[in-house]
């Protein structure tokens, strides 16, 4: 299966949210990273055909997804960044409803819904009304509904937002098992979430892809540019502000270790370290947001 965008562009007035994007996605897990407003959500909505591109198109195995209609949507699973629900439906009701929308038979709807409630850790709450759910519980219900139809293309917009660490691990495992022979795209701000499960990382900035590659390879770009320096805790803040700092860590000796991204050693005692994705993210975005 090959999902391809061709010169995909979406403008809102003068703001270009997705800008002449060309990308080819084949089976695998893709981690979509980018600052707030980079265009991740817009890109995903375009992929789901719930927003119309200003120009360009999306093709699945060479066919425009708009023309594929039901056929395309039957392959699709989507977790919106924000979504609504029916407050008086129970979790199970909601999944059964979405199953009906997705064309599952009543029998397989029941089976699949129960399975997924189990998989996201909601089986004890399956009979509770959604309005009684916490944010993380709703989020997990959202993940479950996206997967009801065993989608070949699974698009998850910030699936781990609001999940506690235990649930996050559960989610990662769920996706890793599920992802075989499928296209899974997930956006996140938590770099460590994709570091482990994504096979490819897509970095977006101002509606364009600035980087595309495997997590191991992708960090090689900044090989030799990540440093750790130890400074007195009192000055740590000052140093951190003047460099592109990805992390601060206090030691028990009143010192602070700064992790700095810089092409030259930022100070004398700097030690070169292995770059990780978070460093790369900061390398591209320098902590700024685009609005």
């Amino acid at each position: 299966m090959e999902l391809k965008t061709i010169e995909l562009t979406k403008k809102f007035g003068r703001k270009t949210a997705v800008n002449h994007l060309n990308v080819t996605l084949t089976n695998g897990v893709y981690g979509l990273l980018g600052a707030n407003g980079a265009g991740k959500t817009t890109f995903m909505r375009l992929l789901c055909n719930i927003q119309t591109p200003t120009s360009g198109k999306i093709v699945l195995n060479g066919k425009n997804i708009v023309g594929l209609g039901e056929k395309y949507r039957s392959l699709l699973g989507y977790l919106p960044q924000q979504f609504g629900y029916y407050p008086d439906f129970t979790a199970l009701d909601f999944l059964l409803y979405v199953s009906a929308l997705k064309g599952l038979s009543e029998k397989s709807a029941k089976k699949k819904s129960k399975e997924l409630l189990e998989a996201v850790g909601l089986s004890a709450e399956s009979g509770h009304k959604i309005k009684t759910f916490s944010g993380g519980m709703k989020q997990r219900l959202g993940i479950a509904q996206a997967m009801l139809n065993n989608p070949h293309i699974l698009i998850l917009d910030e699936p781990t937002a609001g999940l506690d660490p235990k649930e996050r691990v559960r989610f990662r495992n769920l996706i890793s098992v599920f992802a075989k022979n499928r296209i899974v795209i997930l956006s996140t701000h938590i770099v460590s979430d994709v570091e482990f499960i994504a096979e490819e990382i897509i970095m977006m900035k101002s509606g364009q892809i600035v980087h595309f590659g495997k997590p191991q390879e992708i960090t090689s770009e900044i090989d030799g540019q990540v440093w750790e320096c130890t400074v007195l805790a009192a000055y740590a803040e000052e140093y951190a502000a003047s460099f592109n700092t990805s992390n601060l860590r206090n030691t028990d000796r009143g010192e602070t270790i700064l992790r700095i991204i810089s092409d030259r050693p930022p100070m004398e005692n700097a030690v070169r370290v292995q770059p990780n994705l978070e460093d790369l993210y900061l390398f591209y975005f320098k902590g700024d947001t685009e609005e």
Partner: peptide, 20 residues
């Protein structure tokens, strides 16, 4: 009533734009 956010889910489901 769906435009409060369930539209996302409905319109991406197989029957969302047709049978629904």
């Amino acid at each position: 009533g769906e435009y409060g956010g369930v539209d996302n889910i409905i319109l991406t489901s197989k029957y969302g734009k047709t049978k629904c």
